[in-house]
Design a protein around this nucleic acid. Structure first.
Lengths: 182, 182
DNA sequence: GCGTAATGAGACATTACTGTCTCATCTGAG
DNA sequence: CTCAGATGAGACAGTAATGTCTCATTACGC
Protein backbone atom coordinates (compact mmCIF):
# COMPACT_ATOMS: atom_id res chain seq x y z
CA UNK A 1 0.00 0.00 0.00
CA UNK A 2 1.03 3.56 0.65
CA UNK A 3 4.49 3.08 1.98
CA UNK A 4 5.59 6.68 2.22
CA UNK A 5 6.67 7.69 5.68
CA UNK A 6 4.24 10.58 5.73
CA UNK A 7 1.20 8.36 5.49
CA UNK A 8 2.61 5.84 7.91
CA UNK A 9 3.32 8.47 10.53
CA UNK A 10 -0.10 10.02 10.11
CA UNK A 11 -1.94 6.73 10.45
CA UNK A 12 0.26 5.65 13.34
CA UNK A 13 -0.45 8.93 15.07
CA UNK A 14 -4.17 8.60 14.57
CA UNK A 15 -4.11 5.11 16.05
CA UNK A 16 -1.83 5.86 18.98
CA UNK A 17 -4.01 8.76 20.03
CA UNK A 18 -6.95 6.40 20.42
CA UNK A 19 -4.92 3.46 21.74
CA UNK A 20 -1.53 4.46 23.12
CA UNK A 21 -0.80 0.81 23.92
CA UNK A 22 -1.31 -0.43 20.37
CA UNK A 23 1.18 -3.04 19.23
CA UNK A 24 3.47 -2.75 16.21
CA UNK A 25 1.18 -5.24 14.51
CA UNK A 26 -1.83 -3.00 14.92
CA UNK A 27 0.10 0.08 13.86
CA UNK A 28 1.33 -1.65 10.72
CA UNK A 29 -2.16 -2.79 9.82
CA UNK A 30 -3.56 0.67 10.45
CA UNK A 31 -0.94 2.12 8.13
CA UNK A 32 -1.75 -0.48 5.49
CA UNK A 33 1.69 -2.06 5.48
CA UNK A 34 3.18 -5.22 6.92
CA UNK A 35 4.97 -5.41 10.22
CA UNK A 36 8.20 -6.29 8.41
CA UNK A 37 8.08 -3.11 6.37
CA UNK A 38 7.29 -1.05 9.42
CA UNK A 39 10.37 -2.49 11.10
CA UNK A 40 12.40 -1.68 8.01
CA UNK A 41 11.29 1.93 8.16
CA UNK A 42 11.77 2.38 11.90
CA UNK A 43 14.29 0.46 13.97
CA UNK A 44 11.73 -0.36 16.63
CA UNK A 45 8.77 0.90 18.55
CA UNK A 46 10.77 3.51 20.38
CA UNK A 47 12.17 4.86 17.14
CA UNK A 48 8.69 5.01 15.65
CA UNK A 49 7.25 6.86 18.62
CA UNK A 50 10.15 9.27 18.58
CA UNK A 51 9.64 9.86 14.87
CA UNK A 52 5.98 10.56 15.54
CA UNK A 53 6.95 13.03 18.22
CA UNK A 54 9.45 14.73 15.95
CA UNK A 55 6.92 14.93 13.13
CA UNK A 56 4.31 16.33 15.48
CA UNK A 57 6.75 18.97 16.65
CA UNK A 58 7.55 19.89 13.05
CA UNK A 59 3.86 20.39 12.37
CA UNK A 60 3.29 22.47 15.48
CA UNK A 61 6.42 24.48 14.83
CA UNK A 62 5.36 25.11 11.24
CA UNK A 63 1.92 26.17 12.45
CA UNK A 64 3.42 28.68 14.84
CA UNK A 65 5.68 29.95 12.07
CA UNK A 66 2.76 30.31 9.70
CA UNK A 67 0.87 32.30 12.32
CA UNK A 68 3.67 34.92 12.44
CA UNK A 69 2.93 35.31 16.13
CA UNK A 70 5.63 37.90 16.58
CA UNK A 71 3.81 40.32 14.29
CA UNK A 72 1.06 42.67 15.36
CA UNK A 73 -1.04 42.71 18.53
CA UNK A 74 -0.82 39.66 20.77
CA UNK A 75 -4.54 38.95 20.74
CA UNK A 76 -4.60 38.77 16.97
CA UNK A 77 -1.44 36.68 17.06
CA UNK A 78 -3.17 34.21 19.38
CA UNK A 79 -6.15 34.05 17.06
CA UNK A 80 -3.87 33.26 14.16
CA UNK A 81 -1.95 30.61 16.05
CA UNK A 82 -5.17 28.94 17.09
CA UNK A 83 -6.34 28.98 13.47
CA UNK A 84 -3.11 27.30 12.40
CA UNK A 85 -3.08 24.87 15.31
CA UNK A 86 -6.58 23.46 15.02
CA UNK A 87 -6.09 21.54 11.74
CA UNK A 88 -3.15 19.71 13.33
CA UNK A 89 -4.71 19.30 16.77
CA UNK A 90 -4.13 15.57 16.55
CA UNK A 91 -0.40 16.07 16.43
CA UNK A 92 -0.62 18.47 19.32
CA UNK A 93 -2.68 15.92 21.19
CA UNK A 94 -0.14 13.17 20.90
CA UNK A 95 2.55 15.45 22.29
CA UNK A 96 0.31 15.84 25.32
CA UNK A 97 -0.73 12.20 25.51
CA UNK A 98 2.53 10.40 24.96
CA UNK A 99 4.33 11.44 28.08
CA UNK A 100 7.23 9.22 27.08
CA UNK A 101 8.11 11.89 24.52
CA UNK A 102 8.89 14.39 27.25
CA UNK A 103 11.73 12.13 28.31
CA UNK A 104 13.43 12.43 24.92
CA UNK A 105 15.79 15.39 25.42
CA UNK A 106 15.65 16.69 21.84
CA UNK A 107 11.88 16.56 21.70
CA UNK A 108 11.46 18.15 25.10
CA UNK A 109 13.89 20.91 24.11
CA UNK A 110 12.07 21.55 20.83
CA UNK A 111 8.79 21.74 22.70
CA UNK A 112 10.27 24.18 25.15
CA UNK A 113 11.30 26.43 22.27
CA UNK A 114 7.76 26.47 20.90
CA UNK A 115 6.31 27.06 24.34
CA UNK A 116 8.73 29.91 24.91
CA UNK A 117 7.79 31.59 21.67
CA UNK A 118 4.12 31.63 22.60
CA UNK A 119 4.98 32.63 26.13
CA UNK A 120 6.97 35.62 24.87
CA UNK A 121 4.02 36.75 22.79
CA UNK A 122 1.74 36.47 25.79
CA UNK A 123 4.10 38.53 27.94
CA UNK A 124 4.39 41.12 25.20
CA UNK A 125 0.62 41.26 25.01
CA UNK A 126 0.44 41.83 28.75
CA UNK A 127 3.05 44.57 28.53
CA UNK A 128 1.12 46.22 25.71
CA UNK A 129 -2.07 46.20 27.72
CA UNK A 130 -3.79 43.82 25.31
CA UNK A 131 -3.86 40.80 27.64
CA UNK A 132 -4.80 40.65 31.29
CA UNK A 133 -2.01 41.08 33.79
CA UNK A 134 -3.72 39.24 36.61
CA UNK A 135 -3.22 35.84 34.96
CA UNK A 136 0.25 34.26 34.84
CA UNK A 137 1.70 34.28 31.33
CA UNK A 138 2.71 30.65 31.71
CA UNK A 139 -0.88 29.75 32.48
CA UNK A 140 -2.24 31.65 29.50
CA UNK A 141 0.28 29.86 27.31
CA UNK A 142 -0.71 26.51 28.75
CA UNK A 143 -4.36 27.35 28.16
CA UNK A 144 -3.78 28.01 24.46
CA UNK A 145 -2.53 24.48 23.95
CA UNK A 146 -4.92 22.85 26.41
CA UNK A 147 -7.92 24.38 24.70
CA UNK A 148 -6.64 23.44 21.26
CA UNK A 149 -6.15 19.84 22.36
CA UNK A 150 -9.53 19.76 24.09
CA UNK A 151 -11.26 21.17 21.05
CA UNK A 152 -9.48 18.58 18.90
CA UNK A 153 -10.88 15.81 21.06
CA UNK A 154 -14.34 17.35 20.95
CA UNK A 155 -14.17 17.51 17.17
CA UNK A 156 -13.01 13.92 16.90
CA UNK A 157 -15.82 12.73 19.16
CA UNK A 158 -18.38 14.74 17.26
CA UNK A 159 -19.21 17.08 20.12
CA UNK A 160 -17.94 20.11 18.25
CA UNK A 161 -18.18 20.96 14.55
CA UNK A 162 -14.75 21.16 12.96
CA UNK A 163 -15.47 24.50 11.39
CA UNK A 164 -16.60 25.89 14.72
CA UNK A 165 -13.45 24.83 16.53
CA UNK A 166 -10.99 27.63 15.70
CA UNK A 167 -13.43 30.40 16.50
CA UNK A 168 -14.64 28.55 19.59
CA UNK A 169 -11.15 28.24 20.99
CA UNK A 170 -10.11 31.79 20.17
CA UNK A 171 -13.31 33.36 21.49
CA UNK A 172 -13.26 31.38 24.69
CA UNK A 173 -9.58 32.04 25.21
CA UNK A 174 -9.69 35.78 24.58
CA UNK A 175 -13.18 36.71 25.63
CA UNK A 176 -14.28 34.02 28.06
CA UNK A 177 -17.68 32.43 28.25
CA UNK A 178 -19.32 34.95 30.56
CA UNK A 179 -21.45 37.81 29.23
CA UNK A 180 -20.33 40.07 32.08
CA UNK A 181 -16.63 40.46 32.62
CA UNK A 182 -15.82 38.36 35.70
CA UNK B 1 4.06 0.04 54.06
CA UNK B 2 0.76 1.80 53.70
CA UNK B 3 -1.44 -0.99 52.49
CA UNK B 4 -4.79 0.76 52.53
CA UNK B 5 -6.49 0.81 49.17
CA UNK B 6 -6.86 4.57 49.26
CA UNK B 7 -3.12 5.17 49.26
CA UNK B 8 -2.47 2.47 46.72
CA UNK B 9 -5.00 3.91 44.28
CA UNK B 10 -3.66 7.42 44.75
CA UNK B 11 -0.05 6.42 44.15
CA UNK B 12 -1.01 4.19 41.24
CA UNK B 13 -2.94 7.07 39.72
CA UNK B 14 -0.03 9.46 40.13
CA UNK B 15 2.28 7.00 38.42
CA UNK B 16 -0.04 6.02 35.59
CA UNK B 17 -0.60 9.65 34.68
CA UNK B 18 3.10 10.05 34.06
CA UNK B 19 3.65 6.58 32.59
CA UNK B 20 0.46 4.94 31.35
CA UNK B 21 2.44 1.86 30.32
CA UNK B 22 3.89 1.25 33.77
CA UNK B 23 4.05 -2.42 34.80
CA UNK B 24 2.44 -3.92 37.88
CA UNK B 25 5.93 -4.09 39.34
CA UNK B 26 6.43 -0.35 39.01
CA UNK B 27 2.97 0.41 40.33
CA UNK B 28 3.52 -1.77 43.38
CA UNK B 29 6.85 -0.14 44.10
CA UNK B 30 5.35 3.32 43.68
CA UNK B 31 2.63 2.41 46.17
CA UNK B 32 5.20 1.07 48.60
CA UNK B 33 3.91 -2.48 48.57
CA UNK B 34 5.01 -5.73 46.94
CA UNK B 35 3.65 -6.99 43.67
CA UNK B 36 2.14 -9.97 45.49
CA UNK B 37 0.11 -7.73 47.77
CA UNK B 38 -1.00 -5.61 44.83
CA UNK B 39 -2.28 -8.75 43.13
CA UNK B 40 -4.05 -9.73 46.33
CA UNK B 41 -5.86 -6.39 46.40
CA UNK B 42 -6.77 -6.30 42.71
CA UNK B 43 -7.32 -9.36 40.56
CA UNK B 44 -5.10 -8.02 37.80
CA UNK B 45 -4.00 -4.98 35.91
CA UNK B 46 -7.39 -4.52 34.29
CA UNK B 47 -9.13 -4.65 37.64
CA UNK B 48 -6.68 -2.13 39.06
CA UNK B 49 -7.14 0.30 36.18
CA UNK B 50 -10.90 -0.04 36.40
CA UNK B 51 -10.75 0.60 40.14
CA UNK B 52 -8.68 3.71 39.48
CA UNK B 53 -11.24 4.88 36.96
CA UNK B 54 -14.11 4.24 39.33
CA UNK B 55 -12.32 6.04 42.15
CA UNK B 56 -11.55 8.97 39.89
CA UNK B 57 -15.19 9.20 38.88
CA UNK B 58 -16.26 9.11 42.51
CA UNK B 59 -13.96 12.02 43.27
CA UNK B 60 -15.12 14.03 40.29
CA UNK B 61 -18.74 13.25 41.01
CA UNK B 62 -18.31 14.23 44.65
CA UNK B 63 -16.64 17.46 43.56
CA UNK B 64 -19.55 18.33 41.30
CA UNK B 65 -21.96 17.50 44.10
CA UNK B 66 -20.05 19.67 46.55
CA UNK B 67 -20.18 22.55 44.11
CA UNK B 68 -24.00 22.47 44.10
CA UNK B 69 -23.86 23.47 40.46
CA UNK B 70 -27.62 23.45 40.10
CA UNK B 71 -27.93 26.34 42.58
CA UNK B 72 -27.63 30.00 41.71
CA UNK B 73 -26.27 31.69 38.60
CA UNK B 74 -24.36 29.50 36.17
CA UNK B 75 -21.19 31.59 36.24
CA UNK B 76 -20.93 31.26 40.01
CA UNK B 77 -21.72 27.57 39.70
CA UNK B 78 -18.84 27.16 37.26
CA UNK B 79 -16.51 28.99 39.63
CA UNK B 80 -17.52 26.65 42.43
CA UNK B 81 -17.10 23.53 40.35
CA UNK B 82 -13.64 24.67 39.26
CA UNK B 83 -12.74 25.28 42.90
CA UNK B 84 -13.83 21.78 43.79
CA UNK B 85 -12.25 20.20 40.73
CA UNK B 86 -8.75 21.61 40.99
CA UNK B 87 -7.66 19.72 44.11
CA UNK B 88 -8.51 16.46 42.36
CA UNK B 89 -7.24 17.48 38.94
CA UNK B 90 -5.01 14.39 38.86
CA UNK B 91 -8.04 12.12 39.00
CA UNK B 92 -9.66 14.16 36.27
CA UNK B 93 -6.48 13.88 34.25
CA UNK B 94 -6.39 10.13 34.32
CA UNK B 95 -9.95 9.96 33.04
CA UNK B 96 -8.72 11.96 30.07
CA UNK B 97 -5.44 10.10 29.67
CA UNK B 98 -6.49 6.49 30.06
CA UNK B 99 -8.56 6.07 26.94
CA UNK B 100 -9.05 2.43 27.87
CA UNK B 101 -11.45 3.63 30.56
CA UNK B 102 -13.85 5.00 27.97
CA UNK B 103 -14.34 1.47 26.78
CA UNK B 104 -15.65 0.31 30.15
CA UNK B 105 -19.41 0.82 29.78
CA UNK B 106 -20.13 1.67 33.42
CA UNK B 107 -17.32 4.20 33.61
CA UNK B 108 -18.23 5.80 30.32
CA UNK B 109 -21.86 6.02 31.41
CA UNK B 110 -20.92 7.59 34.75
CA UNK B 111 -18.75 10.11 32.96
CA UNK B 112 -21.59 10.96 30.62
CA UNK B 113 -23.81 11.68 33.61
CA UNK B 114 -21.28 14.11 35.04
CA UNK B 115 -20.73 15.72 31.66
CA UNK B 116 -24.47 16.11 31.20
CA UNK B 117 -24.88 17.78 34.58
CA UNK B 118 -22.31 20.42 33.73
CA UNK B 119 -23.71 20.75 30.24
CA UNK B 120 -27.19 21.40 31.64
CA UNK B 121 -25.83 24.15 33.86
CA UNK B 122 -24.09 25.74 30.89
CA UNK B 123 -27.25 25.67 28.82
CA UNK B 124 -29.20 27.15 31.71
CA UNK B 125 -26.61 29.87 32.01
CA UNK B 126 -26.99 30.64 28.32
CA UNK B 127 -30.77 30.75 28.64
CA UNK B 128 -30.44 33.09 31.63
CA UNK B 129 -28.20 35.43 29.68
CA UNK B 130 -25.26 34.79 31.97
CA UNK B 131 -23.17 32.85 29.47
CA UNK B 132 -22.48 33.62 25.83
CA UNK B 133 -24.84 32.13 23.29
CA UNK B 134 -22.38 32.18 20.41
CA UNK B 135 -20.32 29.32 21.83
CA UNK B 136 -21.70 25.75 21.76
CA UNK B 137 -22.66 24.55 25.23
CA UNK B 138 -20.85 21.29 24.60
CA UNK B 139 -17.68 23.18 23.87
CA UNK B 140 -17.95 25.30 27.01
CA UNK B 141 -18.46 22.14 29.00
CA UNK B 142 -15.44 20.54 27.37
CA UNK B 143 -13.40 23.64 28.12
CA UNK B 144 -14.19 23.47 31.82
CA UNK B 145 -12.60 20.05 32.08
CA UNK B 146 -9.81 20.72 29.59
CA UNK B 147 -8.69 23.82 31.47
CA UNK B 148 -8.86 22.04 34.80
CA UNK B 149 -6.72 19.20 33.47
CA UNK B 150 -4.29 21.60 31.83
CA UNK B 151 -3.96 23.63 34.99
CA UNK B 152 -3.37 20.44 36.94
CA UNK B 153 -0.48 19.57 34.61
CA UNK B 154 0.93 23.07 34.91
CA UNK B 155 0.78 22.82 38.70
CA UNK B 156 2.47 19.43 38.69
CA UNK B 157 5.25 20.70 36.44
CA UNK B 158 5.73 23.80 38.54
CA UNK B 159 4.61 26.23 35.85
CA UNK B 160 1.61 27.40 37.88
CA UNK B 161 1.31 27.92 41.63
CA UNK B 162 -1.23 25.56 43.14
CA UNK B 163 -3.05 28.31 44.99
CA UNK B 164 -3.30 30.31 41.75
CA UNK B 165 -4.85 27.49 39.79
CA UNK B 166 -8.55 27.69 40.74
CA UNK B 167 -8.76 31.44 40.17
CA UNK B 168 -6.68 31.17 37.00
CA UNK B 169 -8.99 28.58 35.50
CA UNK B 170 -12.19 30.35 36.51
CA UNK B 171 -11.05 33.78 35.38
CA UNK B 172 -9.78 32.53 32.05
CA UNK B 173 -12.90 30.47 31.48
CA UNK B 174 -15.41 33.16 32.34
CA UNK B 175 -13.59 36.34 31.45
CA UNK B 176 -10.98 35.33 28.88
CA UNK B 177 -7.46 36.61 28.68
CA UNK B 178 -8.10 39.71 26.58
CA UNK B 179 -8.57 43.14 28.12
CA UNK B 180 -10.99 44.13 25.40
CA UNK B 181 -13.96 41.90 24.85
CA UNK B 182 -12.99 40.06 21.73
C1' DG C 1 10.96 -8.97 -20.80
C1' DC C 2 14.74 -8.54 -17.06
C1' DG C 3 16.68 -7.66 -13.01
C1' DT C 4 16.89 -5.08 -8.97
C1' DA C 5 14.70 -3.47 -5.03
C1' DA C 6 10.94 -3.42 -2.04
C1' DT C 7 7.21 -5.72 0.06
C1' DG C 8 4.30 -9.32 2.49
C1' DA C 9 3.85 -13.45 4.98
C1' DG C 10 5.41 -15.87 8.40
C1' DA C 11 8.88 -18.58 11.32
C1' DC C 12 11.82 -17.95 15.17
C1' DA C 13 14.21 -16.68 19.44
C1' DT C 14 14.16 -13.21 22.87
C1' DT C 15 12.32 -10.26 25.98
C1' DA C 16 8.98 -8.30 29.21
C1' DC C 17 4.94 -8.61 31.69
C1' DT C 18 1.41 -11.16 33.86
C1' DG C 19 -0.76 -14.14 37.06
C1' DT C 20 -0.09 -17.87 40.45
C1' DC C 21 2.34 -20.08 43.61
C1' DT C 22 5.30 -21.13 47.91
C1' DC C 23 7.53 -19.99 51.97
C1' DA C 24 9.80 -17.15 55.31
C1' DT C 25 8.99 -13.14 57.95
C1' DC C 26 6.47 -9.74 60.21
C1' DT C 27 2.57 -7.85 62.86
C1' DG C 28 -1.07 -7.47 66.01
C1' DA C 29 -4.87 -9.29 68.82
C1' DG C 30 -5.89 -12.09 72.66
C1' DC D 1 3.96 -15.43 74.64
C1' DT D 2 1.19 -17.57 70.91
C1' DC D 3 -1.08 -17.92 66.91
C1' DA D 4 -3.65 -16.36 62.96
C1' DG D 5 -3.49 -13.30 59.31
C1' DA D 6 -1.04 -10.37 56.29
C1' DT D 7 3.04 -9.20 53.89
C1' DG D 8 7.50 -9.51 51.12
C1' DA D 9 10.62 -11.92 48.30
C1' DG D 10 11.07 -14.62 44.76
C1' DA D 11 10.31 -18.82 41.74
C1' DC D 12 7.57 -20.41 37.99
C1' DA D 13 4.88 -21.09 33.78
C1' DG D 14 2.05 -18.86 30.41
C1' DT D 15 1.40 -15.17 27.28
C1' DA D 16 2.01 -11.29 24.36
C1' DA D 17 4.91 -8.27 22.00
C1' DT D 18 9.26 -7.39 20.08
C1' DG D 19 13.04 -7.70 16.90
C1' DT D 20 15.41 -10.58 13.41
C1' DC D 21 15.38 -13.60 9.97
C1' DT D 22 14.17 -16.10 5.42
C1' DC D 23 11.79 -16.62 1.26
C1' DA D 24 8.33 -16.01 -2.21
C1' DT D 25 6.02 -12.43 -4.55
C1' DT D 26 5.30 -8.04 -6.29
C1' DA D 27 6.44 -3.52 -8.29
C1' DC D 28 9.22 -0.74 -10.96
C1' DG D 29 13.12 1.23 -13.68
C1' DC D 30 15.73 0.06 -17.57
Amino acid sequence: MSTDRETVLREATALLIRRPAAAMDDIARAAGISRATLHRMYAGRDALVRAIGARALEQVSAAVDAARIEDGPADEALRRVVDELMPIAEFLGILYGENALCEVPEIDAAWQRIDNRVNAVVRQGQADGVLRLDLPAAWITEAVFSLAVGAGWAVRDGRLARREAPRGVAELLLGGVGRTRG
